[in-house]
């Protein structure tokens, strides 16, 4: 565990990549399943109102997401740092997110939840943006086992 290692990568997401990535890491029900749930709730008069609300939120969330604060489309447009080149760095001391005008370093003991999903490892840094790594890149660099071991020791695995 004490062995030194270091891995970093740079990325500049465009809006579509950013939204797709955050959607794929999200634990929300996908659009199709949410719509099906809404339709299913329409069949009973007691749950019809909930079904209508569910469908409205699903449709609005999908096609008019700019009205919902905090969704990834809005984050991309509103947050200055997301559109700049970002460097994600992991080493035996902790994780670093660096972009134009902002630098965040969090020691391993300060990480939050982490998850592996759709080929990505995301590590939450409470109050800060999550740290993102492609699992294949980590494996190729030979640091995957060390990173995941530290995530298991210090973080909380995100429930699906």
């Amino acid at each position: 565990m004490d062995q030194a290692f270091s891995f970093s990568w740079n990325v500049r997401f465009n809006e579509q990549q950013y939204v797709d990535l955050h959607r794929s890491l999200s634990s929300e029900l996908p659009f199709g399943r949410r719509a099906l749930l809404g339709v299913a709730l329409l069949f009973s008069k007691y749950t019809m109102l909930i079904g209508i609300l569910c469908l409205c939120l699903t449709v609005f969330g999908r096609f008019m997401s700019r009205f919902f604060p905090g969704v990834s489309t809005n984050s991309y447009r509103e947050m200055p740092f997301v559109r700049h080149k970002t460097t994600y760095l992991v080493n035996e001391q902790g994780l670093t997110v660096k972009s134009r005008g902002r630098k965040i370093f969090v020691r391993w003991s300060g990480i939050g939840t982490w998850q592996q999903k759709n080929g990505w490892l995301s590590v939450g840094l409470p109050w800060f943006p999550q740290c993102l790594f492609r699992i294949s890149d980590l494996k190729q660099a030979g640091v995957y086992d060390q990173v995941v071991a530290r995530c298991r020791t210090h973080g909380k695995k995100k429930r699906r």
Partner: peptide, 8 residues
């Protein structure tokens, strides 16, 4: 103790 962050 755990975080060092800075923003311009």
């Amino acid at each position: 103790e755990q975080v060092e962050a800075e923003v311009l």
